[in-house]
């Protein structure tokens, strides 16, 4: 227990939390846009895992930059199915979403088995290095904890204001909100509802795939079947908790990442006096309370999950 008072424990936990938040941020940022447009991508887990596999395999062959791009695109390819089936053909979003998750997990497991020698459990690459900010990252505790991050983590947090700008300060953002709130009225105003929803869904696929790529290339450097371990679903929870706000996604993802890291680190040091499980719940509770109090005003997109069928 004494270790809890040590600074190094918290440094490790916080930087671990940021690392673990990275895939969640990518996935939830894209999904925030899609949900604001009224499309519920329950297949987010599928986009992530297919991005995880693709990016790792391509990175081995062609390097990290091409790998990440391929990961993002592979997520978008799966999202294209979502666009076709739900946005265009009006299939049920929940059913197709679960189908895409199952498809993604199954397909990647299958490809992995086909391409991996018998007996091997995983595929490895070198994970991306850290970027440290000269001077600042050397500040005791704060610098070590917050400012010594992987590349992908910087990229993820860097995307937050971009997505915020896209959602709040562009005409596309207006259209996205309009088709998610009131597609009939948006159509009557002259907005191409199907196009906006399709683009938003593809964006969710791109960023979902990138989130998956972040796991294999930035977090663990390994692919194994079911590596995403439900993070796509966690991302969906984050979005609801922070009520479709880009900045909220950063905070909410970090809260979950922190809880993850704390749980992992506590397991190493905890004494017999406190059950591990009890300790693990504390950050969740704290995160929940903060988020519930902090993000009350935003509201759910009115047409989330409902397909748009023009009445003509």
């Amino acid at each position: 227990m004494a270790k809890l008072a040590e600074l190094t424990f918290w440094t490790a936990t916080i930087s671990g939390g940021l690392r673990l938040a990275t895939p969640l941020i990518f996935a939830s940022l894209g999904e925030t846009i899609a949900q604001r447009a009224g499309v519920l991508n329950i297949g987010l887990e599928g986009y992530m895992i297919i991005g995880a596999l693709t990016s790792l395999y391509v990175t081995v062959e062609s390097g990290i930059a091409v790998g990440l791009l391929a990961g993002a695109l592979s997520g978008a390819v799966l999202a294209l199915l979502m666009v076709w089936l739900c946005v265009r053909l009006n299939a049920n979003q929940v059913v197709v979403g679960f189908g895409l998750t199952i498809l993604g997990v199954g397909l990647t497991g299958y490809i992995f088995r086909l391409t991996t020698p018998l007996g091997a459990e995983r595929r490895q690459v070198n994970i991306l290095g850290e970027i440290r900010i000269p001077g600042l990252s050397d500040i005791p505790f704060l610098g070590e904890a917050f400012l010594s991050n992987s590349w992908m983590t910087w990229l993820a947090f860097g995307l937050v204001p971009v997505v915020w700008w896209l959602a709040q300060r562009t005409v596309f953002g207006l259209e996205v909100r309009a088709v998610g709130e009131d597609p009939d009225a948006a159509f009557a105003r002259g907005v191409d509802v199907i196009r906006v929803r399709s683009l938003a869904t593809l964006l969710s696929g791109l960023l979902g795939g990138l989130g998956g790529a972040a796991i294999t290339t930035a977090l663990v450097g390994v692919f194994e079947p079911a590596i995403t371990a439900g993070r796509g679903f966690i991302a969906l929870i984050v979005i609801i908790m922070v009520r479709w706000s880009a900045w909220g996604v950063a905070v909410g993802s970090f809260a979950f990442g922190l809880a993850d890291a704390l749980g992992a680190n506590l397991r190493n040091i905890v004494s017999d006096s406190v059950p591990t499980e009890a300790l693990q719940t504390i950050p969740f509770l704290v995160a929940l309370i903060i988020l519930i109090i902090g993000a009350r005003r935003a509201r759910m997109p009115k047409s989330l999950g409902f397909n748009y069928v023009p009445d003509r």
Partner: peptide, 26 residues
Amino acid sequence: LSLVRGLTVAQNIELGRPRALGGTGW
């Protein structure tokens, strides 16, 4: 009426503005 709820009047004025009048196209 076809104003989109959840947006302000000022936001609605921009939404779907015909392209010929400085509105959005692709």
